[in-house]
Simulated assay, not measured.
Amino acid sequence: MSLKIGKKAPDFTLPSTSGNNFTLSKNCKGKACIVYFYPKDFTKVCTAEACDFRDQFGSFRNLDVPVIGISRDDIPTHIKFQKEYNLPFELLSDEKGNVCNAYDALIPLIRVPKRITYFLDREHVIRAAFSDMFESKAHVDEMIKVLQSEKTKKSTNS
């Protein structure tokens, strides 16, 4: 399950691998963005997903759409993960799981983040969500389809 399409995404502030706190409403003000939640750094599927986002990062950057990854890992672990796999986007640490919970991205009882990806428009309204715990590549593919669809809508409306 994910948050409802058309709903305003919850704002949040979390520590980032940039060394600063990341606040959605401040750091992505006026920008669409991809926010993806994942269970754990250095696990097989999470690594594949991060690398898929890395490999397709140019598609997101060319459209000025930041990618933000969030898990409950701490910042030192995120920094190692980011460096080892040359990830060109910020990873945020939600150690307490509050942001994961606000985005319906936390598995109850075991409190591990689900694998869920959101596309937020320029006003941070949720325009797409994709959830699949075991298929990492589909998250990136789905977001690229959404972005291509958004780009087509804009050019048709211009």
Rank of each mutant, 00 (worst) to 15 (best):
N20V: 00
N20D: 14
F22E: 01
T23R: 11
L24Q: 04
K26A: 08
N27Q: 09
K31Q: 12
A32H: 04
A32Y: 03
I34G: 06
Y36G: 06
Y36E: 06
Y38L: 04
P39C: 10
P39H: 08
P39E: 07
K40Y: 08
K40N: 11
F42K: 08
T43M: 02
K44C: 15
K44W: 07
C46E: 03
A48K: 14
E49I: 05
A50N: 06
A50E: 04
C51M: 14
D52N: 14
D52Q: 14
F53Q: 05
F53K: 04
Q56P: 00
Q56L: 10
F57H: 10
L63I: 01
L63Q: 05
D64G: 09
V67P: 04
I68E: 05
G69K: 03
S71D: 10
R72W: 02
D73Q: 07
D74W: 03
P76K: 14
T77K: 15
H78Y: 08
K80I: 14
K83A: 15
Y85H: 15
L87C: 08
P88W: 14
E90Y: 09
E90S: 08
L92K: 02
L92Y: 05
C100E: 02
N101H: 12
N101S: 14
A102G: 07
A102Y: 11
A102W: 12
Y103S: 09
L106N: 02
L109P: 00
R111G: 14
R111M: 15
R111C: 15
P113T: 09
T117G: 10
Y118C: 09
F119T: 11
H124E: 04
I126K: 04
I126T: 09
I126Q: 03
S136D: 12
K137N: 10
H139N: 09
D141H: 13
D141K: 15
M143D: 04
I144A: 01
K145T: 03
